[in-house]
Design a protein around this nucleic acid. Structure first.
Length: 134
DNA sequence: GCCAACGTTGGC
DNA sequence: GCCAACGTTGGC
C-alpha cells in the first residue's frame, strides 16, 4: 500500500465538489514528476486531499479506484489520470502551518517541494497527518 | 498582488 | 548539452 497527497485549488475543484461527485478522474497534471507519481498509484492506495491557495489544509482522504490511463482531456500520450473516490472527511483539517510546525513532517514533499501537485507520502507521514486531523 | 522557487523551452 | 528567458505555482 502506498500513500499520496494531491493538491487542488478549492476554486477549481473542492473537496465538497468531490464528495458530491463521488468519483472523479484526476486530470490537469502537466508536470512530469507529478505524472510519475500518479503512475505509482495502485487501486486501493490512499490519497490525502489538500486545498492550496485557499484554506491551505488537508481536508480529507480519498482512495484510488482505477489505476492510471490516458488523460481523456488531451490526445498527448504523455499525460495520464487516475480515478479517485472520497473516503472520509477529516474532523479537523490539518493546516500547512501545523504541518510545518511538526518535527516528524519536516521531510514531507509538501514543504520541501512546494510546487509539486502530486506527491508520495511515507506511511509514517500519512499516519501522522491523520492523527492530527482526527 | 507580489515574488521566490523551479520546471520548461528554445537558441546557440 | 548548456543556459537564459519565460511561465506557472502557491505561500505570504
Amino acid at each position: 500500500m502506498n500513500y499520496f497527497l494531491v493538491k487542488s485549488e478549492p476554486f477549481k475543484y473542492s473537496w465538497d465538489q468531490f464528495n458530491k461527485d463521488g468519483r472523479t478522474f484526476w486530470d490537469g497534471v502537466r508536470n512530469y514528476q507529478a505524472r510519475n507519481n500518479i503512475k505509482l498509484m495502485k487501486e486501493g492506495d490512499l490519497v490525502l486531499f489538500y486545498h492550496s491557495n485557499e484554506g491551505k489544509n488537508v481536508v480529507g482522504i480519498a482512495k484510488v479506484v482505477r489505476e492510471f490511463y490516458q488523460d481523456p482531456t488531451t490526445d498527448d500520450a504523455n499525460w495520464v489520470v487516475v480515478d479517485l473516490s472520497p473516503v472520509e472527511t477529516l474532523k479537523n483539517p490539518v493546516s500547512l502551518e501545523q504541518i510545518k510546525a511538526e518535527e516528524s513532517l519536516k521531510e514531507i514533499s509538501l514543504i520541501k517541494q512546494g510546487r509539486l501537485s502530486v506527491m508520495q507520502l511515507k506511511a509514517t507521514e500519512f499516519d501522522k497527518i491523520l492523527e492530527m486531523g482526527s
